[in-house]
Nucleic acid binder design. Structure first.
Lengths: 302, 302
DNA sequence: TTTTTATATTCCATTTAGGAATATTAGAGA
DNA sequence: TCTCTAATATTCCTAAATGGAATATAAAAA
């Protein structure tokens, strides 16, 4: 049985940090060790695999072909190791915790209310929630780091299952002082003339937006600012020079209170669905079931 | 990012070896290190997880609840690490190797012919084959250690896909000097009176046999000997005091040449299917496709 | 170029790994 | 219950490794 030539997990951690930070010294900082230590870890790992795993390309550390494969295993294993740690903690303390991942927008607008309802009706259960990016949610579910996730786009990982949570729509909105604040509807042709504040590329609402724009043949909008939080976007809209596409659930309250104005676009709607996702091997989780129950009930009230 | 408290992979290897061999000293032997080293690895691992992972139960080392979880990750990771090593080798040498797992019986009787046909028609491709037990095949496929498998029972792992290869049957056979060597057919009632040489419990033919017997209400046969190889069973049958249930593909030649006699059993046949199995993520493997092609052609000739 | 920033080396103190010998413990058998 | 025995845990020691500080080297930026 193999023993002597096994790689060191800390080598995997080093590789991961170097790739994800893009530099050895940043990685060293994140890992709380010195830069030479990281370099040496990488060398040792390369020696263990007999292949060079990284190369400097334009000042950034990148993976070689072989490095890609090692990196994949490294991330998988480190994530699973973390999940295992947590599982053992839960086991020891006899607690039943639900580890929940949600997208940023859902976390900002829908989650607080849900958590409140849940903790009222199930004071004995515990939920640990994390606001993460869509891609990361898939990794977390796959590795067991998360038991359940609320997402704005369905995952494409083969082991992840989804069920529909609720319908949503991306709405074009502006602040009350914007020139269009009194318009009920505008034609599609006017969309390129507006100045936008949007979520960053790759975020779920942005991907949905870009897909919808491509469908109607619009390639690029005039994006004045990219922001990582819908709440921040709403603040930026207030002065009135920009508009944005935001999930209905995030702006519905502000629209009702006339803090934001919903500009309809003629013959253009971006419909979407919010999803509940979980790993196929993790379909029997008492806290998850209780939580989903709460979500469904809550939905009926709204 | 976690770094300092990561477990040592060699700890995982030690845990795995201890559990699979059932003792610390055996594990030490397999790992080519001393017994104290293994003990210390276990201690270190337990310290890292903050839980005791093993306990001595009746002289055998067993897993605690927490140990189970750690063991699972250990096996997964070590297998994947092995698969990764091999993948890197293939990558470096630019060769295309098919890693094939087959059950013992298939390996003894069907594989040699297949490999020959394959190497004749595809001299540029390479096949590494392993004879392993059914349960292990599933692990190998799941971890990527094997690309393709030929099995006597379909896997129940959710990520593994099967396609039918060929039909088979378990035949009751005896040597030419056995008292029943001239009988064409016997009643079911006579089955318990015979003395059997069978594959060991858990092997694919044995599981099929036991299931079939259960279906007709026969719980136990008189098993004189359990053997790990069908070839060995055939040898043991020669003197003529025992009978066995063996896959048709393993005995058809010997029956034709009158080295074995097939005893039909009235209203009792054990039909089975041989399967080609692979991982869902590994469905595009050129060598696998070429090999499956050979298997199909071969089948038509027989 | 020169400057600046990032990575690799070297050297050293410290820690850790594993072997040999030995103590301890847990089952088996009287 | 008390040996006896086989297995596991400890101890002690040497060899090997880790990671830090200082420094050399390499690669971008100016």
């Amino acid at each position: 049985m193999e023993y002597k030539n096994l790689p060191d997990i800390r080598g995997w951690a080093a590789l991961r940090a170097v790739i994800e930070r893009g530099s050895v010294s940043d990685a060293a900082h994140v890992l709380n060790i010195g830069q030479p230590a990281v370099t040496k870890r990488l060398r040792a790992l390369e020696e263990s695999y007999g292949e060079s795993l990284t190369e400097r390309v334009g000042g950034r550390m990148q993976l070689t072909k072989a490095g890609e494969k090692v990196y994949l295993l490294a991330v998988q294993t480190l994530d699973k190791q973390l999940a295992l740690r947590r599982e053992l903690l839960d086991l020891a303390k006899g607690r039943t915790t639900l580890h929940l991942d949600v997208t940023i927008a859902i976390g900002e607008h829908l989650l607080p209310h849900l958590l409140l309802s849940f903790s009222e009706s199930h004071p004995d259960f515990r939920i640990d929630s994390r606001l993460v990016y869509g891609r990361q949610i898939q990794n977390d579910l796959a590795s067991g780091l998360a038991d359940l996730a609320l997402m704005e786009r369905p995952p494409d990982h083969p082991d992840l299952m989804v069920q529909k949570w609720m319908d949503d729509e991306l709405l074009l909105v502006c602040g009350p002082r914007h020139p269009l604040a009194n318009e009920d509807m505008i034609p599609i042709a006017m969309l390129p003339d507006l100045s936008y504040v949007l979520r960053e590329r790759g975020s779920s609402p942005r991907v949905d937006l870009d897909e919808a724009l491509t469908r109607i043949g619009l390639s690029e909008l005039d994006v004045a600012l990219e922001v990582g939080s819908t709440d921040t976007i709403i603040e930026v809209l207030m002065p009135g020079s920009h508009v944005s596409f935001l999930p209905r659930f995030a702006v519905i309250d502000d629209i009702k209170r006339d803090r934001l104005h919903h500009i309809k676009v003629d013959a253009f709607r971006i419909m979407r669905t919010l999803w509940i996702a979980r790993h196929r091997d993790n379909i029997a989780h008492p806290v998850a079931d209780a939580f989903i129950d709460i979500m469904r009930k809550d939905n009926q009230i709204d």
